[in-house]
Simulated scan of single mutants.
Amino acid sequence: MLRPVGPLPAAVYWRRRLLVLLLVVAVLGGGGWLLVAALGGTPGRAATATAAATPQAAATGPPALERVLPSVAGVRTPTPAPEPPAEPAPAPTQTPGGPCSDDSIELEVRGPAGAPAGSKPTFELVVTNVSPVPCVRVLDERLQEVLMLDAAGRRVWGSNDCFPGDGTETRTLAPGESVTAALVWGGRTSEPSCTTPRTTPQPGDYLLRGRLDTEVSPDVPFTIS
């Protein structure tokens, strides 16, 4: 196969083979170029167009970070709804001429700041209508009471323990009007049944507290010397 056979010199046959090989290579190369041109156009021009378009797209498009994360300025945070204003508590109402509620009266204990042991001081229970309209309050003696407590809050004496009283009274109180009831302390201890021995409290600091049925006054200091 490799050695030429024929009447002509061997060089002639080698030249013919070389010429045929060149023709085959040329045909194959031309066919490949035509196939590429038919499928995608000219390779050199496509590469040039792609290279030219890439910088322009990069220049006009958003930065790479903004394509991944949104801009802070573009993020909208919701605004919290304002809290409704607090409504004031409704003022207690008092029906004109009706019964005085506990909110409509003020109770106070008045008297000396102190007294010697064994003495008999007088205390006053003062009831005042603090509402803007007149109202009616039951002032029965059994509903009125002054209590004495020691520093630990233990009961020492009560005005109704041994002498509860049986008087009845219903009073119409005008706005700002006060009613005073005087109660005398006998100077000795007592308890509600008034059955235990009554003794003279020891000198020291005590508290006085008034009561009119369900209404209770603030405590008032009292000293026994």
Score class of each variant (00 low, 15 high):
116 P>L: 02
52 A>T: 00
165 G>V: 03
53 A>N: 15
65 L>C: 05
68 V>Y: 15
96 P>L: 11
42 T>V: 06
59 A>R: 06
41 G>V: 12
155 R>K: 02
31 G>Q: 13
141 E>Q: 04
132 P>T: 07
39 L>Y: 01
88 P>K: 14
35 L>T: 00
68 V>C: 15
97 G>P: 15
119 S>K: 02
95 T>K: 08
106 E>Q: 04
46 A>H: 08
152 A>Q: 08
63 P>F: 08
117 A>T: 04
109 V>F: 07
90 P>Y: 03
56 Q>W: 04
88 P>W: 12
165 G>R: 06
120 K>H: 15
165 G>A: 11
37 A>M: 02
162 C>D: 06
154 R>S: 14
129 N>P: 15
120 K>V: 15
161 D>V: 10
146 V>R: 03
73 A>R: 00
114 G>F: 12
71 S>C: 00
105 I>L: 05
85 P>K: 10
118 G>E: 14
50 T>P: 00
152 A>S: 12
87 E>K: 05
126 V>A: 08
47 A>T: 07
26 A>R: 05
100 C>E: 01
25 V>M: 13
149 L>W: 08
98 G>H: 08
96 P>S: 09
53 A>Q: 14
32 G>P: 01
66 E>F: 03
56 Q>S: 10
106 E>I: 00
149 L>V: 08
28 L>E: 11
58 A>R: 09
161 D>R: 06
132 P>K: 09
109 V>W: 04
154 R>D: 14
118 G>C: 10
67 R>M: 03
97 G>M: 10
111 G>Q: 08
145 E>R: 13
125 L>Q: 09
138 V>D: 06
133 V>W: 13
62 P>K: 04
103 D>N: 06
102 D>H: 12
119 S>N: 03
77 T>W: 13
98 G>S: 11
116 P>T: 01
145 E>V: 12
104 S>C: 13
97 G>D: 10
120 K>W: 14
84 P>M: 10
109 V>I: 04
157 W>R: 06
116 P>E: 01
51 A>G: 09
135 C>N: 07
109 V>T: 03
56 Q>P: 00
35 L>V: 00
44 G>A: 14
101 S>A: 14
66 E>R: 11
119 S>I: 02
155 R>M: 09
34 L>H: 01
53 A>K: 14
134 P>I: 03
54 T>I: 07
148 M>H: 05
113 A>L: 06
57 A>Y: 03
152 A>Y: 01
46 A>G: 14
135 C>H: 04
130 V>S: 12
111 G>T: 04
45 R>K: 11
123 F>P: 15
98 G>E: 07
130 V>W: 03
114 G>D: 11
139 L>R: 00
124 E>Y: 12
86 A>L: 12
44 G>R: 13
43 P>L: 14
161 D>I: 08
153 G>W: 05
117 A>D: 05
94 Q>M: 06
25 V>N: 11
44 G>I: 13
83 E>F: 14
98 G>A: 10
70 P>R: 05
146 V>K: 03
95 T>C: 13
27 V>G: 15
116 P>R: 01
75 V>Q: 00
50 T>K: 01
70 P>H: 01
144 Q>W: 12
105 I>P: 11
105 I>A: 03
95 T>H: 11
34 L>V: 00
67 R>T: 02
134 P>D: 13
30 G>A: 08
150 D>I: 14
